[in-house]
Design a protein around this nucleic acid. Structure first.
Lengths: 254, 254
DNA sequence: AGACTATTCCGATATTGCGGGAAGATTTGG
DNA sequence: CCAAATCTTCCCGCAATATCGGAATAGTCT
């Protein structure tokens, strides 16, 4: 079935391959790109000229690199998320209340994307995860989002998830995932015990506005040794649910 | 001279025009894009398929929109900035010390780009400016960067700046700008009195590592009524310079 | 200042993007 | 639950234009 690519634009794909290469290389000379992509000098040059014209690529000290246009677009998109202006405060509160990492994520297809994160006691790393992605099924916040989707959409998402394993307890069986999601719906929040990363537990809950529109999810995560027993199953869920409720109210009243 | 565009890739330009349109529209149907760009249904469709394949565009509830891949790329690029992991703490400190807005910017050509901002007393809006751009000559931090560039590069930048007016006192004359930059070099910091925005003053200083490599600049900005006389010319410059010095040391010792 | 390297320009070939229309899928209304 | 309407996707011929290789120009280093 090669007609998959028949409905795509090959020239644009070439330009995008160049962007991906620059993303991975960080900074590359025209020659490096030439080799990496197996293209003629003039071709690489012409594409780079176009990428620069639109501001996606700039010249660095020793080669070409991606520009901050991506941050410009990304930052703008983030501000467009309904209620985003109130997310920061809630996450900061939650981080200092729990002294753990708190985060707000959204779903994009079968990925979770971190829009804002903060750490309680260690304020050095804020924003360290901004824009990061991961499969949606292997995190508490991700599962919380999927759990509360309308049944049909939910099934569609489950079917298209790769269910790849990223941690010791990652759910890799669709049926097992459905059971977990049902539990999450009953409880109102999601748990993740070393499903995304070894040694990390997390609690997540969805942020829902207008009764059924899920705009994202909030979660708290930290070392398994600190997030366990009563704290994991009562104290932290209460705090997370309080945060999501407050956020929902703030959004609806604005 | 139409041979400007002769060395560019038109198909990629078309794809990029679509991205720009989606950026401005926020979310658009295929038909809206068709009209806006004056292209055939199949063409728009083919380009959108390609943009989706590479993850730059996703389908929203009522049309197509830009994806958070831009934030993923942008967030990654930001983390690559030397010393970025220490920027947050310094900016947060500066914001709470001054109770004003503090920011870290970098230069990209003749633009300044905000990488991180924080407000002292009002923590609601953090990150509200992430990724935003403006002409480099109309801000304190921007001028601080240009002022300390090597003479040659500095002239090159001055020559390519548009010198557009964005505030009541924006410098629009190259000679006037050169004088101001010389003053900034003597003083060690830059002032901006309503040059970028009416009613806003700011103090900025460059962040330099390895003796001459300018990685960005820090500035504090606020209402002209609060940032004036001794505070503007002594107290705040001291704080800003202390912050840049500390940041420089942290970066060099890491 | 001269040699070397890197960048940009140019022209011929054929690949591939384009528009129009048909087929297929999905939604809306009766 | 079926039919009409609408939106999305596919296909095909034509011509635009992306590609490659090489030459000219600009830039850099010794």
């Amino acid at each position: 079935m090669e007609n998959q690519s028949a409905s795509r634009v090959k020239t644009t794909e070439t330009s995008f391959e160049m962007l991906e290469a620059l993303f991975q290389e960080g900074e590359a000379t025209r020659e490096e790109l030439e080799e990496r992509l197996g293209m003629a000098t003039s071709t690489v040059h012409r594409h780079l000229a176009t990428l620069q014209e639109y501001g996606y690529v700039v010249r660095g000290p020793e080669g070409y690199r991606l520009s901050f246009k991506f941050l410009t677009f990304g930052g703008f998109l983030r501000r467009e998320v309904p209620g985003y202006s109130m997310v920061k405060q809630k996450i900061d509160d939650l981080a200092s209340q729990t002294d753990e990492r708190a985060q707000f994520i959204i779903r994009e297809g079968t990925d979770r994307v971190y829009l804002y994160t903060e750490i309680g006691d260690n304020p050095v790393q804020t924003g360290a995860h901004t824009g990061r992605r991961g499969p949606i099924h292997s995190s508490a916040a991700g599962k919380a989002i999927v759990a509360f989707l309308p049944a049909e959409e939910r099934e569609q998402v489950i079917d298209s998830i790769s269910l790849e394993q990223t941690g010791p307890n990652t759910i890799t069986d669709p049926e097992r995932l459905r059971e977990d999601l049902a539990e999450i719906r009953e409880r109102g929040y999601a748990l993740n015990r070393e499903e995304s990363t070894a040694g990390v537990h997390a609690i997540g809950a969805p942020v829902t506005v207008n009764d059924d529109e899920i705009i994202g999810a909030i979660s708290v995560s930290g070392p398994a040794t600190r997030l366990k027993s009563d704290r994991l199953e009562n104290e932290l869920p209460d705090l997370v649910l309080a945060a999501t409720n407050e956020l929902e109210l703030h959004i609806e009243h604005s």
